[in-house]
Amino acid sequence: MSTRPSYSNNMDIEFRNVTKHFEGVVAVDNLCLSVKRGSFYSFLGPSGCGKTTSLRLIAGFEQPTQGELFIGGASVVGIPSYKRPVNMVFQQYALFPHMTVSDNIGYGLRQISPKIDKLEVRKRVDEALEKVRLSGYGERRIWELSGGQQQRVALARALINRPTCLLLDEPLAALDRKLRREMQIELQTLQRDVGITFILVTHDQEEALSMSDEICIMREGQIIQSGSPQELYDQPQSRYVADFVGKTNFFSGTITEIKGSKVIIETGSNEILVGTQAKGAIPLVCGSKASVAVRPGMISLSALGETKKSDRISIHGQIMNRIFLGENSEYLINTKGYGEVMVLSPKSLESDNESFVPGDMVSLSWSPEAALVLGDV
């Protein structure tokens, strides 16, 4: 669900009804959004949703078919990429292997006309190296660096021209999981240190959730929902967003009663479930199809027969599988009338002697407030 944003002087990027066609294909469809100055903003979505096209429109590699695009309050429609106050870090970094680290970082400065004094270039290169924690690496060759170090060189090269915005096109995709997490923290720290707007394109929900101040979730060229990571995780406005951001259990059925924010659903197996409507979602109506969404971490497990609070939703099932994830255990449970349910149980609630194993019959329970009722969109 796209909500038209309000525009003000503290916005670095503004899309106003921007549409982009490619030979009859609508890649971006009437996009309206604004990015606050100094924020870490992410476009999140599957391949083909329009996120990369949106980034390329900001960079100037593409021009809108219609609509207006502003950077720092100035229209950039028709302005070529090299005249825009933005720089981009690509997935493959695009570093020059025949140059030293310092020469790579200072390349953009040396292209500016009139020429910048060599001592000034040297000074700014050294400052950039310090910012990305590569002081002393200036004379090394690119092939002598690790993947994480190469990524930092690419960041330094993009930042040295002091752009209004830094554009990141899936820059961590080629890194292994541990290094990717380290670089996520470094990017966050760097963004706070330099104080400029970072705009990230990614299909990795964990990456977007962990790094962003605001996330724009896209599908088929449109914004489905935007907000802070916590808002998107705790209050998804559609089944699509709940399914895309994090893991979720869905129980589908028909709405039989609505009392304020409380919604009652009857499932296909004639079971009754209670939940609350998500804030900002399209209002639900009785008789319509909907889904109750419950996050795996909001469900508690207990042995059959244990006393439970009467105000909690409770169902029974048999454990089919258990995956040990370190701090958590992930259970897959087959329930009568509700299908397979995933539960994420913290290690602090288990011990080696008390954790459940496949074949155990268990009780699953959750608070009605933890269940969101979402339209099947």
Rank of each mutant, 00 (worst) to 15 (best):
L232W: 09
Y240D: 00
K247L: 02
S238E: 00
I217S: 05
F244T: 04
G253C: 07
T248Y: 00
F250D: 01
Y240W: 04
I224A: 03
F251P: 00
E206I: 14
R239L: 03
P229H: 12
F198K: 13
E231N: 12
D193G: 10
I255Y: 06
I223R: 06
F250P: 00
P229S: 11
E257L: 14
G246W: 03
L200Y: 15
E231I: 08
Q191F: 01
R239P: 00
T248P: 02
N249L: 02
N249T: 02
R219M: 09
V245S: 09
T189G: 05
Q225H: 02
L200R: 08
E206Q: 15
K259V: 12
D193M: 12
E220K: 09
T254W: 00
T254E: 12
L209K: 09
V241I: 15
D243G: 04
Q222L: 06
T197K: 08
G246D: 07
H203G: 12
D213E: 02
D234H: 10
E231M: 12
V241F: 06
E207V: 09
Q222D: 04
I258A: 08
D204A: 14
S252V: 00
V194S: 13
I199S: 02
Q235L: 12
Q225F: 05
G246A: 08
G227N: 14
Y240S: 03
I215F: 02
I215Q: 06
R219W: 02
L200V: 14
A242G: 00
G227Q: 09
I224Q: 14
E207I: 11
I199T: 07
I217C: 14
L190H: 11
I196A: 05
K247N: 06
S226P: 05
S228K: 09
I196C: 06
S238Y: 02
T254Q: 13
E214Q: 15
H203M: 12
L232K: 04
S226T: 14
T202D: 02
S226L: 04
E220Q: 13
A242H: 00
T202I: 07
E257C: 10
F198N: 13
Q205S: 03
T248V: 15
K247E: 11
L190Y: 06
S210T: 14
D213T: 08
T197R: 03
K259N: 12
Q230P: 01
G221A: 13
D243W: 00
I199W: 00
M218T: 09
A242Y: 00
I223Q: 04
L209Q: 13
R192V: 10
G221R: 07
I215M: 02
F251I: 15
I255H: 07
V241C: 04
D204K: 07
D243E: 08
I217D: 01
L190D: 04
E207H: 09
V201N: 03
G195W: 13
L209E: 05
P229D: 05
T189L: 08
T189N: 14
P229Y: 09
Q222V: 13
P236N: 09
T197N: 06
P229E: 10
Q235N: 15
L209R: 11
V194Y: 07
Q205H: 13
M218E: 10
L190P: 08
D243K: 00
P236S: 10
S228Y: 00
